[in-house]
Design a protein around this nucleic acid. Structure first.
Lengths: 154, 154
DNA sequence: TACTGATAGTCAGCATACTGAGCAATATCG
DNA sequence: CGATATTGCTCAGTATGCTGACTATCAGTA
């Protein structure tokens, strides 16, 4: 069998596994209980008030069915409000609450530290190169997953 | 907010998301129903007959509790046998079945093609560099997840 | 041998992620 | 306008992955 270390799929999973562990550890240490996708959703909603779930899903490249549950839990935690859209009665408009904004501000240093920590084995130049190569591979494969990135907000 | 494209955690998740989608698509097209972890487990057990679950988990860097379910499903599909160890009555020895060997052989080209496809946006040199950098980052963060890689078979 | 600690496996519970299906509402085109 | 296609969201079902707890067993030691 081919060595796992020669399988990009294995390396991708492993790197992401560590990234998630580092994220949760830093966030937990800072006194918060927020997952990576919950953070990404919260930040995107703050930057795009009133965004609907489908557009949000496209912005952070998550499946719509996953976003339903994520938003459920953020609403449960009083970090988000979900209300019916007036323009399109199928859609749900998402708005961050004051508590959501406070949480986002307070948690950001831990998130930044986590991003730094997950690359701690690399020099700054290597870290930049890793990110460039991941971006390039991702761009080429964007349409291959069910949840591609969609850059448009409208 | 920092751009998602500047967050290594986001890029890691996205790359892995595409890697899994490509893997499942290729394997499905080849007529099989096997997930990445199921493939990794099957291949490791073939290479290490009679391995116990904890050692297997260490070899492919999965959590023990995840491996329990994975092995359950592989046994269900008649690709594995799980039996009590004679040396250590806590342990379960894992053995690949003939059908498991046939499946592994038949599925390998699809798996190789998936590994190639998930890097299709990169030149060979870039692909090699991406893998080197992921390996380096992973090595530095190995102990940060609950399921670190353990290279020993004994 | 009795005690203590570590290890192998499982389980309950939770949160992603996916497939496929379904409903309601909107957009499009004849 | 009316039929059709598309879109936004949700749900059921399945499979990872994790935390924390539990049982059974083993290993080391007083």
């Amino acid at each position: 069998m081919r060595d796992n270390n020669e399988m990009p799929g294995h390396l991708a999973r492993r790197f992401q596994q560590i990234a998630v562990a580092v994220f949760l550890a830093e966030v937990s240490e800072a006194g918060f209980d927020l997952t990576p996708v919950q953070y990404a959703a919260l930040a995107s909603i703050k930057a795009n008030p009133g965004i609907d779930q489908a557009t949000l899903a496209g912005l952070i490249a998550y499946d719509r069915t996953t976003i339903t549950g994520v938003v459920d839990r953020l609403v449960q935690k009083n970090l988000l409000e979900r209300r019916a859209s007036s323009r399109d009665r199928r859609a749900r408009e998402l708005e961050i609450t004051d508590e959501g904004k406070r949480t986002l501000r307070a948690i950001t240093p831990a998130v930044e530290e986590a991003q730094r920590l997950m690359l701690r084995g690399l020099s700054p130049k290597e870290a930049a190169e890793l990110m460039r190569l991941m971006r390039k591979a991702i761009a080429a494969g964007n349409e291959l997953s069910r949840a591609p990135l969609r850059e448009t907000t409208g």
